[in-house]
Structures are given as C-alpha cells and as structure tokens.
C-alpha cells in the first residue's frame, strides 16, 4: 500500500485513479500512522510553491516526510509536488522547499507562451529505473510556468521548450520527481507509474 499525501493542493483523485488502473493499492491521507506504514509516498500538487510548503507545515508533514526519506522509502513528487522537493522556490516570494534535491525552482525564462501546456517529448539524461518502460522521445503532458534548475546530477530526463532544457524527471536515491502529469499522460504516463510501482515493490 502507498499513500498519496493529502495537503489541500488541488485534485488528487486523478492520481488515485491512475494508481488503481495499474493495480497499485493507494489511499489519500495525511495521517502519520498511515504514512509510516506506506511502502511508497506520492506527493501530488497543483497551485503555488509557497502554499504547498505552508500546508505541509500546517499538517505537520515536513518532519514525517523527512523521516520517510531518511528511511529510504520511495517518494515521488508530481508537478508542484516535484518542485517542492528542491531547496528553494521563487514563486511570488522566496520560499524554502523540502531540499531533497539540489537546486531551485524559478519562472521559465522564455518569450514563448506560459504556461508551458500540452504534450511534449522526453529526452533522456541519466539512466534510472523509472525510465525502464519508456522510450526516448515519447510524449507526456505538461502544465506549468515554473521549472527546476537544470542540475546534471539529478536530471534523469528533460524536455525542450522556448529554447530551454526543462527538467522533466529528476531524482536522487529514493526520491523521484515528475514535472509533467503521468496520471494525465495516457499510456506512456501509465508505464512510468508502473516503473515506479516496481521500485516500490522491490
């Protein structure tokens, strides 16, 4: 069983539906006991960096997540849930993130339209188990205006937009983040979630 963290940052039901479809048993919760029992943790989220961090603190989830991270439990952040895995965010104002991954999150610097919305292709940067079911250049669904710094040591896959290389899958040790929405990325997204399921189950 895994836990989808419930911290009031948008609709998390689609993540739950996606888990169900691949046979990954999941619950939506912010209960400490449930989180401590979980074999894996999904950190979802849409909205703003500062609100997400504030909510995590308000529900006492930061310490629990830190503890789970230290205990080597697989954690995957999706979209905003990926961004707060980094050290700092600059949406509205500077705000500290969870700091599991090195780097900051800032506005995409481009003259192209924002949000970066729609299907875009993945380019691989580093080998990782999370890529095992997909091929380079497959499409996933993005919707965001902020991006993580391109830090070679934690970028697993990236996409290109407005002349920028945008980190799309990031990770270090037991922590993974997806800037796009695997739960909305059709069959490709499903294969990515299945790879994470295997990481959780091994």
């Amino acid at each position: 069983m895994i836990v989808i963290i419930d911290y009031n940052v948008g609709n998390v039901k689609s993540v739950l539906n996606a888990c169900k479809r691949i046979g990954l048993e999941a619950i939506i919760s912010r209960d400490e006991e449930e989180i401590k029992k979980a074999k894996g943790i999904i950190l979802p989220g849409v909205g703003s960096f500062a609100v997400a961090m504030e909510n995590l603190k308000k529900y006492g989830l930061v310490e629990i997540l830190n503890d789970r991270k230290e205990n080597n439990i697989p954690i995957i952040g999706i979209c905003l849930g990926m961004q707060i895995l980094f050290e700092k965010g600059f949406e509205v104002e500077e705000c500290k993130g969870l700091g599991y991954l090195k780097g900051n999150v800032d506005m995409i610097k481009t003259t192209e339209k924002l949000p970066h919305m729609g299907w875009n292709q993945l380019y691989f940067n580093r080998q990782n188990q999370i890529l095992k079911n997909i091929k380079e250049l497959e499409d996933v669904y993005f919707v965001h205006s902020f991006m993580a710094d391109f830090n070679n040591e934690n970028v697993i896959a990236y996409t290109e937009y407005g002349g920028m290389k945008i980190p799309a899958i990031v990770g270090m040790d037991n922590v993974i983040g997806c800037q796009f929405h695997p739960e909305k990325s059709g069959e490709v997204g499903e294969r990515i979630l299945k790879a994470w399921k295997e990481i959780v189950e091994c």
Binding site: S14, N17, A18, Y141, H181, K184, S185, G186, E187
Partner: peptide, 8 residues
C-alpha cells in the same frame, strides 16, 4: 470520465 480517462 475521470476514472476512465488518462488524458486531461
């Protein structure tokens, strides 16, 4: 729809 669909 949300249950069945894997796209936005």
């Amino acid at each position: 729809g949300a249950n069945e669909l894997r796209i936005p």
